[in-house]
Computed example of a mutant assay.
Amino acid sequence: MVSVDRLSTQSLWALMGLAIRNGEKLGIHRDGTFLGLSPLETEDRRRLWWQLQYFDLILAIRLGITPLTLMADWDVKLPLNIEDDDWTPDMENFKFPEERKGLTSMSYCLFTYYVLDQQRQYHVDKGQFELSWSTNQSVPKHTKEAFIDQLEDGLNRIFLQYCDPIKPLDMLLQLIARALTCVFRQRILLTISEHPGHVDHEHRGLLLAASMQLLEYSVITHSHRLLKDFEWFTTKGFPWPAFMVVLVEASHENDMDKCQRIWSLLSDLYAANTSLLELTEDRRRLHAAELIVAAWKTCQSKGTVGQPSQKPELVTTLESRLAECLNMSAQRLGANDGHKDNTGEATGLETPQNLPVEQDATPLFDLDFQDIDWSFWNSID
């Protein structure tokens, strides 16, 4: 897993194909109980196979595809919820240790395997597994919601009820589990919102609440003192679609109190996740900065954010960062003397739009959900 951010996803995807095919050649895709193997060897093979599937899934999400092995008819059972020292030298050859009740050192791996297994089982009647089930229009809304309820119930029963809130890993597990089910529900609501005729005020309210909740999870994950040592694990997976929903609703909101709560959340989000201010490292950060400035001026022109003197420090900071990017881009383009790279586009930093002025504020953020390129905000660089 440490290589995920050090090698290209394409390279890792190719290597993962070799690893899985070699695993199949060794028969690791079959559960050891069907092959007459010892419990210890069976457990080792289960852990190896499920970790390969999880790693394969991570790479597939980055590439926007579904791994073929998830659709295959393999029968490896989930690893046991046990500690390594539950295996003793005098243990009978064909006797598994009894699973522990509660969390073990394996629980944090089992959590991801369980979520994957539940989705795989849920779609077995269709003969395939697809990562986009929550946004698939052919799957009825009530069917999706029933699965999420079932998944959440299982996570509560098997994992979350045993979490100790003062243990960092337990807290992280709770946050990830809650965010996961919230993401699924938010995606269902967002899919409906992309069709204007199907959206009412109540639906938009539910979508905004789910999106704000996801951003609040992100704030806690990046700011809580107990989770500081796990920043390496929480840097990926920022909820960009939820961020865009909140930003769109901020510009459309006519209630001053609600609008100010939204801007307070956005300020907390950037304060907790300072990497969002590094605009040149991710295109989405740059465009998000532009949209925040535009949305603020739109809200200001409508009078939903109070007096001009109440301008958030976040907006001032982003205006300054955007101006710096604009200057850097101009200098880089001047140094390159207008040369083009092999794609035909000018080299150097992506140039932000001109900063908005007061008289142009009203039409700046005239966007609704169907106008947004969600594939851009869902992309993983």
Rank of each mutant, 00 (worst) to 15 (best):
H142R: 07
K95F: 05
T280Q: 11
G23Y: 07
I148A: 04
G334R: 11
D366Y: 06
D229W: 03
D341I: 10
D153L: 14
P308Q: 01
S38H: 11
V115C: 13
I372H: 01
R332Y: 04
V199D: 04
S211C: 08
S329Q: 14
N342A: 06
D125N: 11
F233N: 06
E152H: 12
S264Q: 08
I58G: 00
E319L: 07
A14D: 09
T104A: 06
L318V: 05
D255R: 11
H29L: 08
H201L: 13
H252A: 15
S264T: 12
V248Y: 00
E345Y: 09
L355A: 06
R45S: 12
R157D: 14
W50I: 06
W87Q: 09
T304P: 01
S132V: 05
T234P: 02
A19G: 06
L131W: 07
S134W: 09
V357W: 01
E43F: 06
K95Q: 15
W263Q: 02
D85A: 08
D84Q: 14
R45T: 09
T42I: 08
L26E: 14
D268L: 11
K77C: 12
R225H: 10
G348T: 07
P241S: 02
Y270D: 00
A330M: 14
E253W: 00
N273A: 03
T112S: 10
A60G: 11
Y113A: 09
L247Q: 01
E324K: 05
T234D: 01
E202F: 12
P67N: 07
S218R: 14
D44E: 15
L15E: 13
T135G: 07
L59A: 02
R185Q: 13
R321A: 11
E313T: 14
L57R: 12
H339D: 13
M171D: 01
E358M: 07
Q51G: 08
L269T: 04
P168L: 03
Y162F: 15
K77E: 15
I192H: 03
T191G: 10
P79D: 03
D125E: 13
I20D: 02
K297R: 12
L52E: 04
